[in-house]
C-alpha cells in the first residue's frame, strides 16, 4: 500500500506530480523494495510490522528527495539506502520500547491484566453485539 503522503502528491487533479515522487515510483523504489522488504523481515517477524516498516522506508525515501542524488553513483545509492534503513531501525526500536512498556504495565498481577481478565469472564459487561458474535462463534464450533 502506498503512504497517503505519496499518494496525494501523485494524484493531484490535473497537476503533474513533483519529480521526486515520479522518480521514486518509477525508478528508485522498485530497485530498493526487495532489499528493504528483506530488512523489514529481519527486523520483525510480524507481517503487519513488516508492512509498516516498508512504508516507513518509502516515506523516508520520499522525504530525502532522490533527485538530489546521482543514482548512477554507488556512494549515493548507499547513502539513500542507509537513510531508509536507519529510519526503519529507529521506528522499530521505538515501537519495541513502547510494547515493552505496555507489557510491563500489563504484566501478571497488574491492575490492567486483572481488569482484562474480569471483563473476559463477566458476560454481563459485554455489549449485545459482542454476545451475539460469541454465541454464533460457539454454535459454529
Amino acid at each position: 500500500m502506498m503512504p497517503t503522503s505519496v499518494r496525494s502528491t501523485v494524484s493531484l487533479d490535473g497537476v503533474p506530480p513533483t519529480t521526486e515522487a515520479m522518480l521514486i515510483l518509477a525508478l528508485v523504489w522498485p530497485s530498493f523494495e526487495p532489499e528493504i522488504r528483506c530488512y523489514a523481515e529481519k527486523l520483525s517477524k510480524a507481517p503487519d510490522d513488516q508492512d509498516d516498516l516498508v512504508q516507513v522506508a518509502l516515506i523516508a525515501l520520499w522525504r530525502s528527495d532522490p533527485t538530489a542524488y546521482d543514482l548512477l553513483l554507488r556512494d549515493d545509492v548507499a547513502y539513500l539506502r542507509s537513510i531508509m534503513m536507519n529510519r526503519m531501525r529507529d521506528v522499530y526500536g521505538r515501537h519495541r520500547l513502547r510494547l515493552a512498556k505496555l507489557e510491563a504495565e500489563a504484566g501478571p498481577g497488574s491492575e490492567h491484566s486483572r481488569r482484562i481478565a474480569a471483563e473476559e469472564t463477566d458476560f454481563t459487561k459485554m455489549s449485545a453485539s459482542h454476545l451475539r458474535a460469541l454465541v454464533t462463534q460457539i454454535q459454529e464450533a
Binding site: V15, T19, A26, D65, P66, T67, D70
Partner: peptide, 22 residues
C-alpha cells in the same frame, strides 16, 4: 532527466519540490 534526476542530459520544464530545511 524526465524524472528530475541529476545528469539526465535534457533541457526540460520540471515540477520540483525544494525544501530549504534540506
Amino acid at each position: 532527466g524526465v524524472h528530475g534526476q541529476l545528469r539526465g542530459g535534457k533541457t526540460l520544464r520540471v515540477r520540483r519540490r525544494l525544501c530549504p530545511g534540506r
